[in-house]
Design a protein around this nucleic acid. Structure first.
Lengths: 208, 208
DNA sequence: TAGATTGTTAATCGATTAACAATC
DNA sequence: TAGATTGTTAATCGATTAACAATC
């Protein structure tokens, strides 16, 4: 899979295409034209064709796109055909909620462990049998386990401090829920979910 | 506060300015130039000045920007000088995590109640004394309480069905965590946090 | 006053949309 | 074959960056 200068705007749209195609697939729809999909998704047909063609000709003139095939291909582009091992950094409410969200909803993403400054504080619940380790053990843990993604759900300063350990431990991607930007080497990637900023954007929109 | 055609890109950047200014404020920094802020934030100075000037001249030639003043003004633009009453729709892990996140972190956003299809299922915890009501009572509840924001953390189809009730109930904004787009009348606004899409974007970036 | 830095206009860049020839 | 619809190029639109005159 090769990145021939795909813009960030396009990447951000791919998961949404994937979601809509998944719904069509469930509905038993076999083929769809860019025009029809554009109606359902509220984007232009031109944009759909333009976006898809960055990755190759998935459609067929006079026919449209085969739903199952396109769904599959976009899944591959997004890397959903692979599996990923995750650790959760933090074991508070948010970390546990995200951990079980990922565990239930996302087949290819396996939550392997939680780490917390104070693992005793967070009770093990019957529906959550994944171990919570003390944060100091993370470095050793990463030596013995190949982990692809670290989910960060701890305060901002703790989050920034932990990056070198994740780097050394061979973690490739960070899903960041802390209220900070994170500097990582260029062979690592960060995807941030800034809940606070999202709520502020809502508040802006309500007032304007 | 008036919206003179501010683009979405600008609005999305405002909370980040606010965050950085908050840090500077905590550090006791009195004034800052667009050049210095641009270095810290990794954006161009030009963009900062351009963005800020959409809302008025907050700076002063030869001086820069007063940190406290700018922080305050951006806060006002974002509507952070007001208070908002929220209800949480859903009382599962994610809803409770977000509910307590908002409660702890965001002073102006008050969580008033939870609603759930099965309120009995979700135990009341000592650190969470906000009531959980059955979902059927929401319509009546909204008649008797002025609620500004509904946070949606229930499955996609349930989420879509609930919109008319929120509309009738006078809710202005929706913070949507369900895996669906939501159609609302144009006097309402939706801000979605698509966790699933965010994770897919991370997965894409790891592979490219 | 001189130096610094904004506010703002103009130039550039990139992303979206329109159009249509290619082709199934 | 005729009709439909893609793939792709060209035109438009919008957003970002550069430049500099205004001014503190």
């Amino acid at each position: 899979m090769y990145n021939k200068g795909i813009s960030k705007a396009v990447i951000n749209r791919l998961p949404r295409y994937h979601r809509y195609l998944g719904i069509l697939l469930d509905q038993g729809v076999i083929r769809i034209s860019s025009a029809e999909l554009s109606r359902q998704m509220n984007v232009t047909a031109s944009q759909i064709r333009q976006d898809l063609n960055l990755f190759g000709g998935f459609g067929q003139q006079g026919y449209g796109y085969n739903v199952a095939y396109l769904y599959e291909e976009i899944g591959k582009i997004l890397g959903l055909d692979k599996t990923y091992r995750l650790i959760m950094i933090g074991a508070g409410r948010l970390a546990r909620a995200i951990g079980s969200y990922v565990g239930f909803q996302k087949r290819g993403f396996q939550v392997e462990a939680f780490f917390d400054r104070d693992p005793e504080k967070h009770l093990h619940r019957p529906d959550n049998d994944i171990m919570i380790y003390p944060l100091e053990e993370m470095e050793t843990y990463l030596k013995n386990h190949q982990i692809d993604i670290a989910v960060i759900a701890i305060p901002a300063d703790a989050a920034r401090k932990i990056i070198p350990i994740l780097d050394k431990g061979g973690v490739k991607g960070i899903w960041n829920f802390a209220r900070t930007d994170l500097d990582v080497p260029d062979y690592m990637t960060v995807q941030s979910v800034h809940l606070s900023e999202s709520l502020m954007q809502l508040s802006y929109k309500i007032n304007h």
